[in-house]
Design a protein around this nucleic acid. Structure first.
Length: 499
RNA sequence: GCCCCCAUCGUCUAGAGGCCUAGGACGCCACCCUUUCAAGGUGGAGAUCAGGGGUUCGAAUCCCCUUGGGGGCACCA
């Protein structure tokens, strides 16, 4: 194992986001490719917004993708593993306080007694004056007496980190050298709230230092936070890790991807029947490429091939149509047994929603696969594709039952003839190869277009105009039910109002 | 407002000075296959490489400026 240590550090303030999955993926792949360690850490210091349910969603979602982590919370249930725990930040609050107090003792940080209201007023004033928001430094040089006075007022101080005046630079693995003037950082920033809970910029650095993270791979939105982090690493006396800032995933209008304009929760994509393979494959290609023309890549392929040098700098617009295409590619690559297993939950959901009346057996499903596999854009499309096979009855629209070239009487006559032809094939020889020739002969004998007859039968037995190939469909439906549905359609047509 | 980042077909991208009259994929169109729908195959439209200056014998590739877009500036993460 190399000394590469990377981490994904989501905050459980919402469900696992598709952008988070990609960040995790890039970290995971970097670790695997370089024989390093992938750490998962939960950043739950925003107590007001963090929930256990979201944490669970993140853990199970991540595990669903096939990614594994070497250290961090267990994917299911409670507990964690790894030598650098705790991996949930709320479990090490005392530690952050100690570190902050140490910084105060060293003069690198100081208590600030400004109230949120005072700070808010200051920001407002700066905004109207068109000045950049910035902390004034009012509490930076308080005398012991002044501090004591504030304490007597009952004020509880937050702890601020001294930013100083200097330039801070780093060599981004993706973007190259970046330099900031610390004076543009907004002044001294708070690392500990007045209630002594720590803030993001602080915990992220303390933890990355504690966990000996060597490469921080994260979204581009953190580029301008990086100088604060570097300052903190240095104040802690810790080696500064390497940074790599990934391009953002964008909405169609090129703003940062949001749930306003896109589906962003991984769980929604799972629920619609996107495969883990497709999600991983699609996401890794948003901002990275092999440098070749290959584009269907498994997680295993990627673990061998991923690297940071082919990462794009500009943001990438999320394109659901392309995701669906990748998904189709992967569905077509799954083994029959695997596909049956994966389809099961979606069929159960169809039944639960009352869209089908019964569940197919494994045998039925396997028999259907050849015809299903190349037609499913998502696993969730199963109901739409062949749900008509598993309902008690279909109600074909009489208007649709009559092909354009025909009138109602022709349709009735044709369906009756088709019914008799199918009945004549008999239950024993009821197979696609046995059904097609006699029905074709029928169309020739009567001078009908095969397409018209087939369409009338299709609509009669499925209620729809677009279905898998007709004869496979009839076989899947079964002899009895095919005849029943034909009879019913004929009745309906005969009884329908003349349009 | 200030700081930072970015810029090749509608979209994802290949491209690291001559291989580019810019390649692939998604989407779109047409044709083939075909009982419908898909899948698959073939072909097509689609980018004066944001614009302008340099550097160079030669620039999508290097430099500068402009424009455009994005991100960040909390006692959120």
């Amino acid at each position: 194992m190399s000394d590469v240590r990377v981490r994904f550090a989501p905050s459980p303030t919402g469900p696992l986001h598709i952008g988070g999955v990609r960040t995790a993926l890039f970290n995971y792949l970097y670790a695997r490719r370089h024989g390093g360690t992938f750490v998962l850490r939960i950043e739950d210091t925003d107590v007001a917004r963090s929930t256990r349910e979201y944490e669970r969603d993140i853990l199970t979602g991540l595990a669903w993708t096939g990614m594994t982590w070497d250290e961090g919370p267990e994917p299911h249930g409670s507990g964690e593993h790894g030598p650098f725990g705790p991996y949930r930040q709320m479990e090490k609050l005392e530690h952050y306080r100690d570190v902050a107090d140490r910084l105060v003792a060293a003069g690198l940080a100081y208590p600030c007694y400004c109230s949120p209201e005072e700070l808010e007023a200051e920001r407002k004033r700066q905004e109207t004056a068109h000045e950049p928001p910035r902390y004034s430094g009012r509490c930076a040089a308080l005398s012991p007496d002044e501090r004591a006075a504030f304490e007597r007022e009952g004020r509880k101080p937050a702890i601020r980190f001294r930013v100083g005046e200097r330039t801070v630079g780093f060599d981004d693995l993706i973007r190259g050298p970046v330099e900031f003037d610390a004076r543009n950082l907004g002044g001294d920033f708070i690392i500990l709230r007045a209630d002594r809970t720590p803030l993001y910029h602080f915990v992220v650095v303390v933890d990355d230092a504690d966990m000996e993270i060597t490469h921080v791979i994260r979204g581009e939105e953190h580029v301008s936070n990086t100088p604060k982090h570097i300052l903190l690493f240095e104040a802690l006396g810790h080696t500064v890790p390497r940074f790599a800032h990934l391009p953002l995933i964008l909405n169609a209008d090129r703003s940062k991807m949001s749930k306003r304009m896109n589906q962003t929760a991984l769980s929604d994509y799972i629920a619609q029947g996107f495969t883990r393979e497709a999600i991983v494959n699609y996401l890794v290609l948003l901002g990275w490429s092999t440098g070749t023309e290959e584009e269907i890549l498994s997680l295993e392929d990627l673990e061998r091939r991923f690297d940071l040098d082919h990462v794009q700098k500009g943001g990438a617009v999320f394109d659901r149509e392309r995701l669906e295409w990748v998904n189709g590619q992967w569905i077509r690559r799954l083994s029959h047994e695997d596909l049956v297993d994966r389809l099961r939950p979606f069929l159960e959901a169809e039944q639960a929603a009352g869209r089908i009346d019964r569940l197919p057996t494994d045998e039925e499903l396997v028999a259907l696969l050849p015809v299903l596999q190349e037609r499913l854009p998502t696993l969730g499309a199963i109901g739409d594709l062949v749900g008509f096979l598993f309902v008690d009855r279909v109600d074909p629209d009489p208007a649709v039952l009559v092909p354009k070239r025909w009138d109602r009487d022709t349709a009735i006559e044709a369906l009756r003839a088709a019914r008799d032809t199918i009945a004549a094939v008999g239950q024993v020889s009821y197979e696609a190869d046995e059904l097609e020739p006699p029905l074709r002969e029928l169309t020739e004998a009567r001078g009908w277009k095969a397409g018209d007859l087939f369409m009338a039968i299709r609509v009669a037995v499925t209620g729809r105009t677009a279905t898998p190939p007709l004869f496979d469909t009839l076989v899947a439906l079964g002899y009895e039910r095919t005849l029943e549905r034909l009879d019913r359609a004929i009745e309906r047509l005969a009884g329908a109002e003349v349009a």
